[in-house]
Structure formats: structure tokens, C-alpha cells
Amino acid sequence: MAIRRGRGVAAVNYPTGMNLGGDPSQALVHSTPTGNFMVSLSSVDLGQGLKQVMAQICAETIGVATDQVTIDTADTDTGPHCMGTFASRGTHRIGNAIIRAATEAKQVMLEVAAEELEVDAGDLETDGAGNIIVKGAPQKSISIFDTALAAHFKQGRSISGRGIFLVPRSFPETETGAMKPSTCYAHACTVAEVDVDDETGEVTVVSVKNVFEIGRALNPKMVEQQLVGGSWMGISHALYETTEPYYPKREHGGTDFNQYLMPGPGDLPETEIVVLERPAADGPYGAKGPGEMCANPQIPAIANAVFDAVGVRVDTLPITPERVLRAIKAQHN
């Protein structure tokens, strides 16, 4: 009877958004009379930071500061339709919809500015500091503030734009079955080290080392936060989370989250996160969806590490001490 150390590796190839497509999100963008921008969505910020990243995307597209953009996700009854924030789709689908809406709004804004400056709209650009300037002649400019005032009160135009991003439904080819399940994949690889007590069956994660390839990290601190939390959750899924086993019968199982086991702050292994950025061709500013993927590769990596340590395949989650001991016993018989 001994503590046995094992190491396992696993990699994941993760589609962004709903597989097979047919997966749209809409955005509407309009300016206030003073040149701030409202983005109307039905998408929900669950705490993942959707509003912050969507504001960045809108600001980048129009050429204003992020704090000049307000993201309104107030009401799914009245907002433009969104499939939802799930399937790691939020940044990719909604971000692309916002780029389209903001691009349309920006075009109107430049046309209004062109009228005020008596130049061609095609010769104008934003300077990122709240002004619209003539390309190559920045001394000839008008502020976005004054442009919005002119649009509202003088020219009678609405600086606004509509955007929708749809990954079309992919049907399999009849002959070959070939299809395009997704247009954008994020990737990850985890190496897990575990100690397995072959007397008690207890698995302790010693370290997890994760590499995530996520397109471009639009907000690197928030990406890191999501990945660190996800890595922990992957360990939690691998070893702890279940409503079973309870004895002697299922009716004795947990009835709420108070009986649902998760690791606490004292159960953290040494965790390493490395982010690789390979911008996605169809991602908003190159972003992919890392949300769900970041909690996935830890699970097979830990299962492989358990195999490396004690030579048994536990193929049911979570990898509880009971399951490890039963597998070891079965192997000896």
C-alpha cells in the first residue's frame, strides 16, 4: 500500500458556438444626441464579463473610448434577438453582430461629419480620442460630440446601425456525410500530476499545467480569470461533483447544493496557465470562445494520470475513492 504518483495529458479541440450552425445573434447600435453609443442586446452577462468586452468591441469599431459605450442587455422582450450566452458563443457571435452594427452606425456618423466639414465621407476617419479627422489633414476635424448634435438637431439623421451574425446551418453531404460543424475552434492542452493512495483510493491533484489557444484575448485579465476558474472547475468535475453516491438508495442522495461536493480554497493544486493567441479568421478582432473549453481538458488529463499512477481506467465521473478502489480490486481479480 502506497501513494503512487502519475502524470496524464489531454488535449481538446473545441468548437465556438452551437455545432452545425443556425446560430444567430443581433445587435443594434445608436448614438445619443451627445455622441455616446448605446448597444442594445438580449444577451446576458452572467458574470463572465460580456458587457465589458462588448463595449470594447463597439468602441474599437467606431473609434471612441470604451467608457463612451453603454451596453444595454435589459430586456429579452424588447431587445434584438440573441440565442444566448452559452456554448462559448458570446464573444464570437455577439461581438461579430456588434461589429456589423457599429460599422453601419459609423458610416452614418462619417456621412454627417462629411456634410459638416464639406468633404467626402470616404476621406474621414476617427482618431480614437473623440474626433473625426480628414485623413492626412488632422487639423481639419470635428468632434463626435458636435457630429452627433448636428445629426440630431440640424441634419435630422439617426446615427445608428443594425447587425446580425449568423453561422448558417450545415447539413451533411448525402454521399460522404461530410459537413462543417463549426467555423471556429479553440484549443487547449493540460498536463495533470496526481497522487493516488492505493489503500484509500483518494486522488490528490499535485499540479495542473494548462495551455489555452483562444484566438485573440480581447481583455487579457478577464481571459486569465476565466481560465484560472475554469481549470479549477475541471478538477472539480473530475474528482468531486456528483449527486451520488448515497447509500443504500438513490432517495438518500443530496437534495440541494449543500450536499454537492466541490473543492475549497485548501484543495488547490499548483496551477499554471499559458495563453496562446492565434487570431480566428471569422472572430471579432480574432477572438474565439474559451468559456466552456477551459474546464474540459483537466478531466481526461486527470483520468490518464490516475491510470499512469495505479494502472486502472476509471471511466465514470467523478473519479471517487470508491471507484478507484473498485477498479484496483477488479484488476487484481
Binding site: 480569470q225 484560472v228 476558474g229 479549477w232 475549497g264 480554497p265 485548501g266 488547490l268 496551477t271
Partner: peptide, 19 residues
């Protein structure tokens, strides 16, 4: 710090940033 936080559950962060 870990001991002091042991009675508080977090689902999102993995505790590391909190510690």
C-alpha cells in the same frame, strides 16, 4: 488565508485570485 476562507464557497474564480 486559506483557513480563513474555508467557510466561503466560490463557483467562478477557483479561489486562487481571492487568496
Amino acid at each position: 488565508v486559506i483557513e480563513a476562507l474555508a467557510g466561503n464557497i466560490c463557483r467562478c474564480t477557483g479561489y486562487e485570485p481571492i487568496i
